[in-house]
């Protein structure tokens, strides 16, 4: 997707007319011009709106069971020449409306993804920054632990952590966060290693700035761009991980609804009623797609920004 990056120097109208154009506005304009950022961003805003207003958007009660509508096939939006809101995407094993459950499930998937990614971002940035900035023994110890965590396939480590803490959605979220920390720490560390030698850091040190001050004020504030890109891409990974854990029965527990949980419920009837499994998977795929588009777009924009030095 990198070939979608806009090319050529920035010769926007304001720059030409000589009006002052702040770096922040230039960045914003570049972001809005990137098709990946636009498409991914719009999709994500849409998902967030659905999650935020879920209780008001569901056409039916997502928890209401009805034996008469078990495995009801999708009825579609248009029935007998009129708009239909009942079982648009069909019903599951307990006769519950799949569309309404998808809408409610958006909350868990996005929230778990967001919290897990934020936690890994904070811990990964701190660990990576400290390791890279201090170097020496501290660096060795931190990065050695990160290596150990990376020596297991991510999903396996998550399964092991959830198994130890007990299967529920909070623990699943924590497990996903832990799994994501080492990658984040590595990227931030390599960024910090480069920053540490820069003149502005040296002059801050010469001016008598303490370690914490320099780390927070000068190093972390300059290492956030790659971390943000990684975090955006990581949202997709986190959402799939939650789905996988819930699918295995280690994440969301009934009566809570999440997309992965819906997949695991539909699994037994995959041959007779595939629609139960189809739609949650489409929702996961779309969300992951949106975050990877946004992440790729952000990387294009920031890479250019870093190269331009603006």
């Amino acid at each position: 997707m990198t070939d979608a990056a806009p090319s050529g120097p920035d010769t926007s109208a304001t720059a030409r007319s000589g009006a002052p154009s702040s770096p922040r506005r230039r960045l914003l304009r570049r972001l809005l011009r990137n098709p990946n950022v636009l498409v991914g961003g719009v999709l994500i805003v849409l998902f967030v709106v659905v999650a935020a207003f879920a209780p008001w958007l569901t056409p039916m009660d997502p928890y209401a069971q009805d034996l008469w509508t078990r495995y009801e096939p999708p009825r579609g939006l248009w029935v007998d020449g009129a708009l239909n809101t009942e079982f648009v995407l069909g019903a599951d094993a307990l006769g519950r409306d799949i569309l309404s459950r998808l809408i409610v499930g958006t909350r868990v998937s996005l929230l778990v993804g967001f919290l897990a990614t934020s936690l890994s971002l904070v811990f990964g940035m701190v660990l990576g920054a400290v390791a890279g900035y201090l170097g020496g023994l501290v660096d060795d110890v931190i990065m050695r632990i990160m290596d150990v965590l990376l020596a297991l396939p991510g999903i396996l480590l998550a399964i092991a952590i959830v198994a130890a803490l007990g299967p529920n959605i909070v623990n699943a979220m924590l497990a996903i966060a832990v799994v994501r920390i080492p990658t984040m720490a590595r990227v931030v560390r390599s960024e910090v290693l480069a920053l540490r030698e820069q003149e502005f850091v040296e002059s801050a040190r010469a001016l008598g700035g303490g370690h914490v001050h320099i780390l927070v004020r000068h190093v972390i504030t300059n290492a956030w761009a790659p971390a943000l890109v990684l975090a955006t891409l990581g949202m997709g990974t986190a959402i799939v991980a939650e789905a996988a854990l819930s699918f295995l029965g280690l994440g969301t527990q009934p009566p809570d609804v999440s997309w992965g949980r819906m997949l695991s419920v539909g699994r037994e009837v995959i041959r007779t009623s595939p629609h139960v499994t189809l739609f949650p998977g489409v929702a996961i795929t779309l969300t992951v797609l949106a975050f990877s588009l946004l992440g790729d777009g952000l990387r294009d924009v920031f890479d250019r920004r870093l190269k331009d030095g603006s």
Binding site: G236, F247, L263, P274, T277, L278, G281, T285
Partner: peptide, 21 residues
């Protein structure tokens, strides 16, 4: 694009319902 985004266990379920059946 879709192949990267779709969870592999879900692709498995879809293959079960479409191909294996």
């Amino acid at each position: 694009l879709v192949g990267v985004a779709a969870p592999n266990f879900w692709i498995g379920l879809i293959l079960l319902s479409t191909v294996a059946s």
